[in-house]
Amino acid sequence: MRLYVPLGITFIAGIIMILEFFVPHDPFPTLGGHVKDWYTIVASSAIFLGILNLLRVHLKKINLRSRNWQYSPVTIIGFLGMFGTGVAFGFTEGPFFFMFNEFVVPMGATMFSLLAFFVASAAFRAFRASNWRASLLLASAFLVMLGRVPIGDLIWRLIPGAAESAHPNLVTEIGEWIMRVPNMGGQRAILIGAAMGVVATSLRMIFGIERSYLGGTD
């Protein structure tokens, strides 16, 4: 019971989703619609587990005075502040919306923008022409980078006659070509390969061959 009922549910849910795609005849569209609706509800309800875990971990840290415990109240207050105002005043206006827009949003944007710095340091460190394959990687990165900003073409047009030639935007064109041809081929190989991986993994799940996500094999 501990194993076979869940495996049966996985099998049925998976097969319904597949059949819904191929069979437009009822009952499959209806069943598929139900499974999708239920999926959303069940997955969303798990948020309570996450909340409990977050609160428990930080309360425990405070209790045990673990390293950096002084910051745990910040997390708890931040959580309760948002949660409380959301329940009390609604989430499309009022203090909840204000705090979200003015504090959470800029923090998200800031974390994201850290990437500008990390991309630079990663490029500096990783793009070394250590062998011919690395040199190709370097060259394609460099050309595309140059082709993405108008300055690439402006540099190209410094060469006498370049601006009047058939390719006044040569650098952009080279960048686009790399994206359109070698990049597309490479990406496509990854997509097709990964699709095979997805098919095989899904089949292993649906047929219960891989079942460790259910916690073991008893």
């Binding site: 991309v119 990783a126 390969g193 993994t201």
Partner: peptide
Amino acid sequence: PFFIAACDYTLIGEELFAAS
């Protein structure tokens, strides 16, 4: 590309699904 630039080993696409 970022994993390749910053990590020691990178499983590409299908290799991730082969890992288990």
